[in-house]
Simulated assay, not measured.
Amino acid sequence: MSDVTRLPDLASRALGGAVVAANDEFFAAKENLVLPEPPVARTEFGHKGKEYDGWETRRRRSPGSDWAVVRLGAPGIVAGVVVDTAFFTGNYPPRASLDGAAVEGHPSVDELLKADWQPLLPLSDLAGGTANAFAVTSDRRVTHVRLAIHPDGGVARLRVHGTVVPDPRLVDAGPFDLAALENGAQVTAVSNEFYGRPDQLIGRGLARSMGEGWETARRRDQGNDWVEVSLACEGVVTLAELDTSWFLGNAPGSAALTGIGPAGEVVPLLPRTRLQPDTRHRFVLASAPGVERVRLDVFPDGGMARLRLWGRPTAAGRSALGRRWFDALPEVQALEVLGSAGVPPDEAGRLVGARPLTGDLPPAVRRLLDGNRLLGGDRLLDGDRV
């Protein structure tokens, strides 16, 4: 994808992102940085001065720089950053940089400040009143980013665009939404997105309005609209949810789901089925082989709030998910992950240095990378088929 801003904003509040710490937020709150809505002009004045829709620090009277730490809503690999200084003209920072860190669990602020921060964006010039966009070259998964502004000033929004890399250990707990953006699914093709972005279909939580779904223009021909989703991994879909909440006079009349397998084979999942407006439709699907992509066809057009595809990964899908995740971990976190799995430090160091891992591996490592469950009646025991 050439335009990295088409990739999900991993830091967005809509995906669960949050600004967990900042050294200063005297004029405007740090939480504004990750709001999903575009910044707006503010004209009122408060007790501390003019109000701004963004994060703004006081004027520094000592050397240094200001910073804010953001927990990504979905950890992943960063491909681009937008430091938006909209409406900050005489008070924007002239330069900024961005670092990333990967931390296990749910760290405190003190733990985050001591994390192994690695550069993602070097110190770069900014313009005022501008969505300053920068490409990022990285192959490592991060859970947090730290924006530093030099020396001080205001930033309206921080967008951290990239590819979601989910933690496969969470997948092993049970069925999960194979189509969820936070689990690594992506919208790969769409017929029309006139009124609403299709990636909102697979967003987090329930839609709060019609504006938080996917909606097409009105069709004036005999065709129909559709959207294709690349799943988090190859999996068997057992339950589909087609949610038309908020869509009253513009919901599709009917819909169908079709899967595409790893060799391009077509797998019918849900035949064309009547839909109702403003309704969460749930359909238990007949047994079918694993698929990598799913196409949703709506007839003839209209809008939908959410698409959920619940199921389990196939053995090949779980293995691909686990190995992609482990290969993308920074060294410090990879060592910590292996240590928590019971791998001795010397062996863990050797394995991390040998990524991507192939050949015979210790059972604990195979269980971590490939999972311990299979579909279709097969079982795994310590990573071995029995």
Rank of each mutant, 00 (worst) to 15 (best):
R140L: 12
G90E: 12
A131S: 15
Q186V: 10
L158W: 06
R169H: 05
P94D: 08
A115L: 10
G128W: 12
A133W: 04
N91Y: 08
Q186H: 04
R197Q: 14
A96I: 11
R146Y: 05
V187T: 08
R157F: 01
Y92Q: 09
R159T: 00
G184K: 06
G196L: 01
L112M: 11
A115Q: 11
G196W: 01
V145S: 06
A115N: 11
V160T: 13
H144N: 00
V165H: 09
R157I: 00
D110V: 14
S191V: 02
E193P: 05
D116P: 07
G162H: 05
P175S: 07
P119S: 09
R159L: 13
D139H: 11
S138G: 03
R157D: 01
A179L: 02
P151N: 00
P175R: 10
D172M: 08
A156C: 09
G174H: 06
L121T: 01
V103P: 08
A173E: 15
H150N: 02
P122M: 06
D152W: 09
V82W: 00
P107Y: 13
D84N: 14
R169N: 08
T188N: 06
H150D: 14
T130E: 14
G128A: 08
L120P: 11
G100P: 07
N91P: 06
Q186E: 15
L113W: 13
N132M: 10
L126D: 03
D167I: 02
F194P: 00
P94Q: 08
T163V: 15
T137N: 12
F87P: 11
R146S: 07
H106W: 14
G128V: 10
A133D: 01
P122G: 12
H150I: 02
